[in-house]
Amino acid sequence: MATKPMTKTQLVAALAEEMGTDKKSASGALDAIIAIITREVSGGGAVTLPGVGKIYCRERPERMVRNPATGEQLKKAADKIVKMTIAKALKDSVNG
């Protein structure tokens, strides 16, 4: 049975406990990590989080899509999407 995802508040509390510091410092560290990942990936780079995975940006070419309501074919412009490849260590720990 799936449970609710961990919220940022819960993550900050767990990070503070793991680091042995206060929640303000843990929140600052988390915000700094998020800012670094965002800056690097939006600039076309990639970030590897050891034991977790690799976050990167991939370009999608122009393509034809269908409006499900009308069935009309539309041309969708090329765009970029953020992808994440999960590390083998994390997959193995989840699968036992």
Rank of each mutant, 00 (worst) to 15 (best):
M1D: 09
K4L: 13
P5G: 05
M6R: 06
M6I: 14
T7Q: 06
T9F: 06
T9V: 14
T9L: 08
Q10F: 10
A13M: 09
A14M: 08
L15K: 13
A16R: 03
E17P: 00
E18A: 15
M19V: 07
D22W: 00
D22F: 04
K24R: 14
A26V: 05
S27K: 11
S27I: 00
G28M: 09
A29V: 13
A29H: 02
A32K: 12
I33R: 05
I36Q: 12
I36M: 14
I37T: 12
T38H: 14
R39A: 15
E40I: 10
S42V: 12
G43Y: 08
G44H: 03
G44Q: 03
A46G: 06
A46M: 13
V47I: 10
V47K: 00
V47H: 03
T48R: 15
T48I: 08
G51T: 04
G51S: 08
V52E: 00
G53R: 01
G53I: 00
G53M: 00
K54L: 08
K54I: 03
K54Y: 01
I55M: 05
Y56Q: 11
Y56I: 03
Y56V: 05
C57S: 14
C57T: 13
R58V: 05
E59M: 08
R60I: 02
R60M: 07
P61A: 15
E62R: 08
E62S: 06
R63Q: 10
M64Q: 14
V65G: 15
V65R: 14
N67Q: 03
A69T: 03
T70E: 01
T70R: 01
T70V: 00
T70M: 02
G71D: 10
G71E: 09
E72S: 06
Q73L: 15
L74H: 15
L74F: 15
K75N: 09
K76S: 15
K76Y: 09
A77Q: 11
A77E: 12
A78P: 01
D79C: 12
D79E: 09
I81K: 15
K83T: 06
M84L: 12
M84R: 01
M84Q: 01
T85H: 07
A89G: 09
L90D: 11
L90C: 12
K91G: 12
K91Y: 04
K91N: 12
D92T: 09
S93M: 06
S93R: 15
